[in-house]
Simulated assay, not measured.
Amino acid sequence: MFIHGYSQCGLSFLRQHALADNFRVIIPDLRGHGQSDKPLNVDAYDTSTSWAHDVRAIIDTLTLQNPVLVGWSMGGWVVNDYIRTFGDAEIAGLALVGSSITTGRMLPPAALAARTNNPDVAATAMRGDDLAANLTATAKFVQVCFSTPLSADDLAFMTGFNMLCPPAVRNACRSRNEDYRPSSANMTKPALILWGQHEQLAPAPMGEQAMDAFPNASALIYENSGHAPFWEEADRFNTDLSAFAAQAFSQIQGAAA
């Protein structure tokens, strides 16, 4: 199950559709994003409960058995919300892509400074009602997710689906201050931590902190990517994730034998 990031939607993972040749691939739109419902009350977004139960509802509705949860950026927080609430007994493992196990003021100081001091990453106008300023900030935010310039068509496409997320939802999502390290420390299933060498939204200290938190973690760094290695180095990413998923599923099958 691929869980997208802040202001994005399931279309972020178009280059992972090829994985459906070998796996059942689930790519939802998070609440407040894409084509999902968009409640505007802050309490729909500011705690683990809603996010965790959304993931659980997908697992239950689709009768998924021990899925691998793949969270990109804020989607990694949603994965951690699930672990915090339900534990890891009913998943095979998790992968965090350009993500973290702390958020907001709880981030490593160097990472917090990097995110705060880069105006394209902070993207404060994305949370405001001035449409022109919002649109401009959104386009810059989309581009800063990548280490190389997007084509005009890709930038327009991604900016378009980012604009489906209302400013109030963006503001609520960016207001969280979470520390998932206690629940991460209790993980028994494998974790894969991935980030790009040219990352600007989730710099290396965030990935390193996650590596230290999970008991069964491994890391992969993508030398030619920024925040979205699943797009910039899609073939390698798909191969790496397939290998991780196959190993995670085999451990579940071995335990059941």
Rank of each mutant, 00 (worst) to 15 (best):
Q8C: 13
R127Y: 06
L131I: 05
N41D: 15
L131R: 08
S99Y: 00
P119Y: 07
D129W: 03
I83Y: 04
A110C: 05
L40W: 09
L241W: 01
H4E: 09
P167K: 06
R174W: 04
T148W: 00
N22T: 12
I58Q: 10
N134M: 10
L62C: 15
L64H: 01
V142S: 03
A191C: 05
F161I: 03
Q16A: 14
L164T: 09
G10K: 09
P119D: 01
D240L: 06
A113E: 03
L19T: 14
R24T: 11
L220V: 07
A137G: 00
V78P: 04
Y82I: 03
P229Y: 02
R115H: 02
L155Y: 07
A156L: 08
A95N: 02
T61I: 05
K140V: 00
A243R: 14
A114P: 02
C165G: 10
T63V: 13
F86R: 00
A95M: 12
D54G: 12
A248D: 06
V121Q: 04
A248K: 04
L164K: 07
T61D: 15
V121K: 00
L96Y: 00
S175I: 01
A168Y: 05
V144S: 12
E199N: 04
S147A: 11
L201T: 07
A255W: 01
T49Y: 09
Q197H: 14
F86V: 04
D46N: 12
F146A: 14
L135V: 05
F244D: 08
I59V: 13
E223K: 00
G196W: 02
A204E: 08
A57P: 04
R170N: 08
N186E: 11
R170K: 09
Y180C: 15
G160T: 03
A202C: 15
Y82V: 02
Q253P: 02
S36W: 08
S184R: 06
G34E: 04
T49V: 11
L96T: 04
L201W: 06
R170M: 02
E233L: 00
H4P: 04
L201Q: 07
P39V: 06
R127Q: 07
P67C: 09
G87K: 01
V42N: 08
M126D: 06
A110N: 14
C9S: 11
F249K: 06
G128Y: 02
L69Q: 02
A139I: 03
F237H: 04
R236T: 09
G128K: 02
L107Y: 11
A243N: 11
K38Q: 13
L62K: 05
A185R: 06
R181C: 13
